[in-house]
Write a protein that binds this DNA or RNA. Structure first.
Lengths: 204, 204
DNA sequence: TTTTATTGATTGATCAGTCAATCAAAAATA
DNA sequence: TATTTTTGATTGACTGATCAATCAATAAAA
């Protein structure tokens, strides 16, 4: 059945298969055979296109991080005010796909891998910076730079922390609750800073 | 030089060696040989005492989690007020030992492992619950239960998130900054709740 | 015919786990 | 006290399984 132009199709299939297998397995100690099988090709073909297991793994991270980035860009573009853009970033982070147990398990595995693979680490650093920077840019429109930096750091940490806690699957927090917790954090830290010193809250 | 009563000595040496090797390596794909070498014994002896690699890994998690628990109990006992106890919990979480890159790398590896090993997962769940519960107990003395639950959840997530972000070692956050961020979160969410609805803040 | 896609079979390396043998301390016995 | 027996500690050498990676061969397009 060999037809020309299969390369991009196979690459994508393999990269998706890798994510799925890693997510199910909850670890990077998956075999090329498993990945290839999931993608419906032979292990040899996976090697043919990616050269090595490590390279396939790296491409897998890259591909899925790119996807996340695209979602974020789209969501931010749809939002108008800085405050709405902030919410958009948060929403994308907790979007159903991202927050599925298998996806979280896969990301966790990649974080662990980043301790050893310089290239994997690089991609995850880019993600971490991007998250922080997306938050920061919009926060700066709402409060002084120094405060914005603090809050961005804290919000990014909270998002990542909600992920890792989710990975344990004990007392799982719903998507809505996760979003609420993060929004609440931003609101609470922003409240005393908005406008002048006056505190405008709606106490019952 | 075989002397009687070596068992507990060897077990501890192996469990410590495992933590160190895993931390350096940044992954659980370390060999029994490496661990045994680090502990100064033969691989066969490690098997003799632990039966399997998996069991050694599980004991390693247990042992180090127990250590963390002891630190927390001691620190909380030394603190007097609920608010001070909260700070104590936070401080222990970011204590130098815990926050060292190798330690963080090791914990990350165990979180990944927890996706596959039910027993490892159980221990980490216990840790997660304990952290949340230590926070919650003291928060309940400072605000209504519902709010306390929210804040405990958020603070626990922030602590774990600061860990995972630290693992990437890009733009590392200092111990002090991590503590400040977490304290700041608690203060900010507590502020509008303390006492009656009146907002008592010290705006410049 | 040349190029691209694809695989089955094979290799070489790595490791967890096993086992029989050794060595020295402790306990029992003479 | 001197001698023998038992037991715990320890290892080197080995095995079996697993897996990434290679390669030569095949089959279908171009």
């Amino acid at each position: 059945m060999p037809k020309v132009g299969m390369e991009p199709v196979r690459r994508k299939a393999l990269v998706d298969a890798a994510m799925r297998v890693i997510g199910d397995h909850g670890s990077l100690t998956v075999t090329m055979s498993e990945i290839a099988k999931q993608a419906g090709v032979s292990p040899a073909l996976a090697h043919h296109y990616f050269g090595s297991k490590e390279q396939l793994l790296i491409e897998t991270v890259r591909h899925h991080l790119q996807r996340l980035r695209d979602s974020t860009v789209t969501a931010m573009r749809a939002a108008k005010t800085p405050r709405e853009k902030l919410s958009a970033v948060i929403h994308v982070s907790f979007h159903a796909d991202q927050f599925a147990p298998e996806t979280i398990a896969a990301w966790l595995a990649f974080y662990a891998e980043a301790q050893r693979s310089e290239e994997t680490r690089r991609f995850l650093v880019i993600y971490a910076r991007r998250l922080r920077s997306n938050l920061l840019a919009n926060l700066k429109a709402l409060c002084p730079r120094e405060d914005a930096e603090r809050i961005a750091e804290g919000a990014a940490a909270m998002i990542d922390g909600l992920y890792i806690r989710q990975s344990l699957r004990s007392a799982p927090i719903s998507i809505e609750a996760s979003i609420a917790l993060t929004e609440d954090y931003i609101n609470s830290l922003l409240a005393p800073l908005s406008g002048e010193a006056a505190v405008q809250r709606t106490d019952k």
